[in-house]
Simulated assay, not measured.
Amino acid sequence: MVLTVTATTQKAGMPDVADPSRVAPKDARELSKLFFEQLEVLEEGTEEYSYARSTLIEMNMTLVRFAAGRFRSRNPEEMEDIVQVGMIGLIKAIDRFELSRQTEFTSFAIPYIVGEIKRFFRDTTWAVHVPRRLQEARGQLARATEELGSRLGRTPTDKELSELMSLPEDEVREARLAANGYNSSSLDATINSSQDGETVLQDFIGAEDEAFELVEDFHALAPLIAELDDRDRQIIHLRFVEELTQAQIGARLGVSQMHVSRLLSRCLARLREELLASD
């Protein structure tokens, strides 16, 4: 550990730590007491106060890495995010710690750090949003299933789980269903690899929805239909919206079915021609 003295730290009565992030945990505990003593007497917003606070944060980063290590198995790819979230807990602990508590800062800070990390997992790792009570019930359900499974030597029933969890059976079933939303798989996830290439998940569950093409056609037809005269628009509406037969349309308009057929064919031919020309 390297300590130096600068005008700022000398004035505030604090040691100047050259690289706070490399201070050993044992030394950090002793130095933290000195810096907390200064935080209590320094005015917030001053250069000395900012130095003491930032040094405390850097010196105690090992607490964050220690706490984050407990969650390494949850998702190793998120370790950087977990550490960043843990830092928020550390900062909250530093801002709220008081020496008068007669408690080690380490014991005070760990619950803050772990709490922030757990909140991160609770709020951000569900693939599908479910109510908070079901998120919490998922963990309880997993523990109860493991306990009863080892005790009974088989998969426990919903009734057995509800008795152990002190929850109604319908809530146990709801929690089991909600647990399916915890993880998700990418549509590009590889299912099988061979010489012919890779088979991905979307090859099995994906399908082309023809309705999308209809939506596009409707949008393209709308301005063309608007250009028709009132009678032609009425015929189109009666045939394709009200789904009347040509005979019913003729009776409604007072013309023959044959005349309706000619008018309808002419309208459709015009719309088809204009639609193809716009592509």
Rank of each mutant, 00 (worst) to 15 (best):
V5K: 02
A7Q: 06
Q10E: 14
G13W: 08
M14S: 04
P15S: 07
S21P: 02
R22W: 07
V23A: 03
A24Y: 02
A28E: 04
A28Q: 02
E30Q: 12
L34F: 07
F36W: 05
Q38L: 10
L39A: 05
Y49Q: 01
Y51E: 03
S54L: 09
L56M: 06
R65V: 10
F66S: 01
G69F: 11
N75Y: 12
E77F: 15
E78F: 13
I82M: 04
V83W: 10
V85L: 06
M87E: 10
L90K: 01
I91A: 12
A93W: 04
D95M: 13
F97W: 03
F97G: 03
E98M: 09
T103C: 14
E104T: 07
F108S: 01
P111Y: 13
I113M: 03
E116L: 09
R119S: 15
R122F: 15
R122C: 07
W126I: 02
A127D: 04
V130N: 01
R132E: 15
R133A: 12
A137K: 00
G139K: 00
G139Q: 02
Q140R: 13
R143L: 14
A144S: 05
T145H: 02
E146S: 13
R151S: 01
D158W: 06
D158R: 00
P168V: 05
E171L: 13
R176D: 09
L177H: 03
A179I: 03
G181K: 01
Y182R: 07
Y182G: 00
N183E: 13
S184H: 11
S184M: 08
S185T: 06
S186I: 06
S186Q: 08
T190V: 15
I191W: 07
D196I: 09
E198M: 10
L201S: 04
G206F: 11
E208W: 15
L214P: 00
D217N: 13
D217T: 14
A222G: 03
P223A: 13
L228C: 11
L228G: 04
R231D: 14
R231N: 12
H237Q: 08
H237R: 12
R239D: 08
E242I: 04
L244Y: 11
L244C: 06
Q246I: 03
Q248M: 12
I249W: 06
I249L: 07
R252I: 01
L253G: 06
H259R: 09
L264R: 00
C267S: 15
E274Y: 03
L276P: 02
